[in-house]
Design a protein around this nucleic acid. Sequence first.
DNA 1: CGCATTTTTGATCAAGTTCAATATCAGTGG
DNA 2: CCACTGATATTGAACTTGATCAAAAATGCG
Lengths: 249, 249
Amino acid sequence: MPHHLIRKLEQFTKLSRDDRQALENAAVKRRTFAEHSDIIQEGDSPSHVNLILEGWACRYKQLDDGRRQIISFFVPGDLCDTHVYLLREMDHSIAALTPVRLAEIPRAALDQLTEEHPRVMKALWWDTLVSVAIQREWTVNLGQRTAIERLGHLFCELFVRLRGIGLTDGDSCPLPLTQVELADAMGLSNVHINRTLQELRRAGLVVFKGKRLTIPDLAALQKASLFNPNYLHLDHEGRHLDANEPVAD
Amino acid sequence: MPHHLIRKLEQFTKLSRDDRQALENAAVKRRTFAEHSDIIQEGDSPSHVNLILEGWACRYKQLDDGRRQIISFFVPGDLCDTHVYLLREMDHSIAALTPVRLAEIPRAALDQLTEEHPRVMKALWWDTLVSVAIQREWTVNLGQRTAIERLGHLFCELFVRLRGIGLTDGDSCPLPLTQVELADAMGLSNVHINRTLQELRRAGLVVFKGKRLTIPDLAALQKASLFNPNYLHLDHEGRHLDANEPVAD
DNA sequence: CGCATTTTTGATCAAGTTCAATATCAGTGG
DNA sequence: CCACTGATATTGAACTTGATCAAAAATGCG
């Protein structure tokens, strides 16, 4: 049951029971991956779309001399590139950061889904547009923001994304990342991540311990990080497309 | 006539005359923008898809304290976010870097195009996937590469993109950007861009003068910049979908 | 408890920034 | 054709952010 994806999509537009069922049906083939294993590697030929059901993953690219950039994080409910199978080969790798359970959505199932369920198709387009907007925001993050803003911004983003699918608990959320992984994502050294974290802690802006992140005052962290959630487009924009069915499930 | 777009898409799959005509028909509403004017601003509500016909543009985001990040460059044939009108408001702005001529593709025209011309729809999906791959590569660029690699990488990318649509001339291509614009795109200061350019010139890797870029030895620049063009997916991957018509146009 | 991983600390170093001045260039109008 | 003007490019010097290297402390887990 890809309920995280459904919950995410319903931030855009309310789906019908039929829509939801179609999504369930598309996500039949399940697989699991161990922590730190590659889900797909640069050069592989993508044959289907991966949907993360449980656990965290990341896209990354390894440079020849060992430098590594984490390009994005996947949390439950995230799709790895709708229609990616149009490309001959992957230009990056995807790795499990925790144990990961995912569904492989075959090409045919996705095509059928978008043909027969226009509301789902639009919701998936919305999801694609948001993913790209997140990638753009990372460009801004890496290009312009200082270390402390950069890390604070990432924390805000992940918290808000997780809240959207119901995975936050009050002012805290899971954050199963090491400082080295944060460093590879933020384009900073692990040493500097460590010092930046201390600075955020000292300012009372975050608590990060035991793979959990707590943000006592989200507004304050947003302000310190120049975080504006508009790029996540979470304001139920597809309301006019909402399925109109009795609440009978 | 959106011939740059058609040429770009045909790197993925050969279109039929009918496909091409449908693209022409969709791109009817023309507009022009002066150098340095905004084509659309953050907060505006997008109602159609812009297709750059002539000139260069960029996406950018302005931070409250004046810092600016250029997020991507648009060259002729580039579409600004297919289906963007699903979003309530723009999370970034788009500005003309030179005088720009573009076509506004209305929502209905795009929907019709993708419904009636599956080959075009797939080609547009390919284009979307490549755009996102470029954005990811910028993440790697800003996160891991040194100033000289970063700038060299950008030059390689732009040259290869322009070559794909026939806008290069031997080993040179237009590059109508100032050093300040390069700086805003690369997350570096204009002073450092200037010094990095000198370094690239001294090494004989580039000539950049009068809004033209010359790359005497592309292989050498690629090597120095760790540039691997795989992420541009330019190897005619949709060949199996090629329209099969007599060459009668 | 013991081992591997992760976090933390200190000291030194380098890449890139900032500020401010000067030089060059592309248009424009006379 | 030249002088003027604003934009763009270039230079120098001091400074800052974050990197690197190496070691120690803490944590997690079987």
